[in-house]
Amino acid sequence: MGMEFLIANIIVLILTVVASLVAVLLRDLLAAAVAMAAMSLLLSLEFFILQAPDVAIAEAGVGACLSTAIVIIAIKGTKRTEDE
């Protein structure tokens, strides 16, 4: 396994996990949605690193773009903060 491959892998994975953690912990739902988009993009990058370009395109289109759009629309239709 190439060293640079391993390092890129580790960095992207850690960033993905951090982004998902941020998406869960943030109280502002819109920010959480953006964090989820970031997570999807990083995940798509990771798929690309793992030689799955088909899945990377799908994840970028569906996960990062459409899912986020749907979540943001739902937040617009309800309310933005998590607190009661």
């Binding site: 869960v24 739902l29 959480a32 989820m36 998590e82």
Partner: peptide, 11 residues
């Protein structure tokens, strides 16, 4: 929050 739960399932 329900939307948080949905985000959790997505993760």
């Amino acid at each position: 929050n329900l939307i948080k739960i949905v985000i959790g399932i997505s993760i």
